[in-house]
């Protein structure tokens, strides 16, 4: 187990020196700022687009618009930026042969998977939380209304979803030498989950609920207990996927 700790430190050093942590910080700070900004600008842009002569009645933007932008940014772009960054985490080491030495020295293969998973997930949390804190500050400043009472309830399911999504990326990355497999696996899983949502009966259990129901949670129109089954399923799937990754890497020729 101690080896896992040593390898976690190596992974953090790698993420830092390869600028991954810096990139994630910059990107998600940008997302954090642009969420309230887009909320503010959208009515203006629509006004301009509709021509100067007409005056359309536009409702003033509220905190709801700001948070809607936040979730859109994270779920439609943010999580893919992250999977691209994590996609090569294991495949790159296998194709370059950097693990041979360390495994020969007694580094257990499960420690490799666990460390990479933990450090990637920590970066996921960093990303979601940085964007959240910045959006939160600006939203309080620009939209001091009471229309978004449960902001945190809407955000933490993103962190839980990351448990599974990062696990899928890591799993994909153990499958082969190609650096795209991790990204591909995540995209495929996301598509499958989206398709599964077409069946009404399983909606309640579908992990996709953690990234689709956020606004209802924020506005308070939906209670967290509604997605609780999906949350548990997500956690179980995450554990299973990490376990499968360990099994795959154990069979891998390094």
């Amino acid at each position: 187990m101690i080896s896992t700790w040593y390898f976690i430190r190596k992974e953090v050093m790698e993420a830092w020196r390869n600028y991954h942590i810096l990139m994630i910080t910059i990107v998600f700070v940008i997302f954090g700022i642009s969420s309230p900004l887009f909320a503010k600008l959208t009515p203006e842009i629509l006004k301009m687009a509709s021509g100067s002569g007409m005056t359309i009645k536009m409702p003033d933007p509220t905190s709801v618009d700001s948070w809607q932008q936040y979730f859109k940014n994270i779920i439609q772009i943010g999580i893919y930026v992250l999977t691209v960054i994590f996609s090569s985490t294991i495949s790159n080491e296998i194709s370059r042969g950097t693990l041979v030495n360390l495994v020969a020295k007694g580094l257990p293969r499960y420690a490799i998977v666990l460390s990479k998973y933990i450090v990637a997930y920590a970066q996921w949390c960093l990303a979601v939380l940085i964007a959240f804190l910045i959006s939160w500050g600006y939203t309080l400043y620009y939209f001091p209304d009471s229309k978004s009472p449960n902001v945190w309830t809407g955000v933490w399911p993103l962190l839980v979803f990351g448990l599974m999504f990062v696990a899928v990326t890591v799993f994909g990355s153990t499958l082969g030498k190609s650096n795209y497999l991790g990204f591909l696996a995540s995209v495929i899983v996301f598509i499958i989950l989206t398709l599964l949502n077409l069946f009404k009966d399983i909606k309640k259990y579908n992990p996709i609920a953690l990234v689709t129901d956020n606004m209802s949670l924020v506005k308070g129109t939906e209670n967290i207990s509604h997605i609780m089954p999906a949350i548990w399923i997500t956690i179980v799937l995450a554990l299973v996927t990490v376990y499968l990754s360990v099994l795959v890497l154990k069979q891998k020729k390094l």
Partner: peptide
């Protein structure tokens, strides 16, 4: 006017993007 009204948003955003 739009830019001036939202300076606290635009300044860090532009700095980050140009810096990057």
């Amino acid at each position: 006017n739009i830019v001036m009204d939202n300076l606290p948003l635009f300044i860090p955003l532009i700095l980050l993007e140009v810096g990057l």
